[in-house]
Amino acid sequence: MAKVKYYYDAETLSYRKIKRKKATTFKYAFVFLLAAALFALLFNFISNQYIDSPKERQLARELQNMQLQYELLNKRMDDAIAALENVEERDNAIYRLYFEANPIPEEQRRAGFGGVNRYKKFEGYDNSQLIAESNKRLDILEKAIVVQSKSLDEIAKLAEDKEKFLEAIPAIQPVRNENLTRMASGYGYRTDPFTKVRKFHFGMDFTAPRGTPVYATGNGIVKRADNSSSGYGKHIRIDHGYGYVSLYAHLYKYNVRVNQRVKRGDIIGYVGSTGRSEAPHLHYEVFKDDERINPINFYYGNLSATEFNELLRKASLENQSLD
Rank of each mutant, 00 (worst) to 15 (best):
M204Y: 06
E62T: 05
Y242D: 01
R110W: 06
S277D: 10
G265Y: 07
A40P: 14
A101G: 09
S321E: 10
A2K: 12
Q148K: 03
S53M: 03
I155H: 13
Y300K: 08
A216P: 05
A216W: 05
P295K: 02
T306L: 07
N319D: 11
I296N: 08
N319C: 10
I140V: 14
S151N: 04
Q49F: 07
M204P: 06
L13P: 08
V214N: 09
L130Y: 05
N259S: 07
D289V: 06
I155F: 10
G265C: 03
E85V: 06
L158K: 11
L311M: 04
Y70E: 05
K121G: 00
D78W: 01
K199T: 10
T207D: 09
R110I: 08
K199S: 08
E88D: 04
D9A: 12
E278K: 15
L38G: 01
D52I: 11
A2H: 10
N48H: 01
Q69M: 14
G265R: 11
E89D: 11
Q320R: 11
T181F: 15
Q69A: 04
V262Y: 01
N227M: 04
E307L: 12
Y189E: 13
Y299T: 01
R176D: 05
Q129S: 12
G269V: 00
V146R: 15
S149L: 00
V256Q: 00
K150G: 15
A156D: 12
Y125G: 15
E154T: 04
V271M: 08
A2V: 07
S277Q: 11
P193A: 00
E178P: 03
Y8N: 15
F30H: 10
Y50G: 03
T25D: 15
G301A: 09
V271P: 13
F43I: 10
P105M: 02
N227I: 11
A29P: 00
Q320S: 13
Y119M: 06
R210D: 02
F113C: 14
G186Y: 13
S228W: 05
M1R: 06
S149H: 07
Q173R: 10
D239N: 07
S53E: 08
L251G: 13
L97V: 12
E291V: 14
T207C: 09
L282F: 15
Y252G: 12
P105E: 10
M66T: 05
Y244L: 14
Q260T: 00
A225T: 11
L38R: 05
K21P: 13
L73I: 06
Y8I: 03
S14P: 06
M77P: 02
K164Q: 14
K253Q: 08
N294I: 00
A82T: 05
E285M: 12
G218R: 15
R257N: 13
I293R: 06
R276V: 02
H235A: 08
N255R: 02
E318N: 11
L34P: 13
R176K: 02
F45Q: 10
R90H: 14
G188F: 01
S47D: 04
T195L: 00
S230D: 13
Y125T: 11
N177T: 08
E56Y: 10
P174F: 04
K22V: 14
G211E: 02
E89W: 12
D323S: 07
L158D: 14
V286K: 07
K22F: 14
F30Q: 09
G220K: 13
G211W: 10
V197Y: 04
D9P: 14
K263M: 07
E100D: 10
Q67N: 04
T191V: 06
E160F: 01
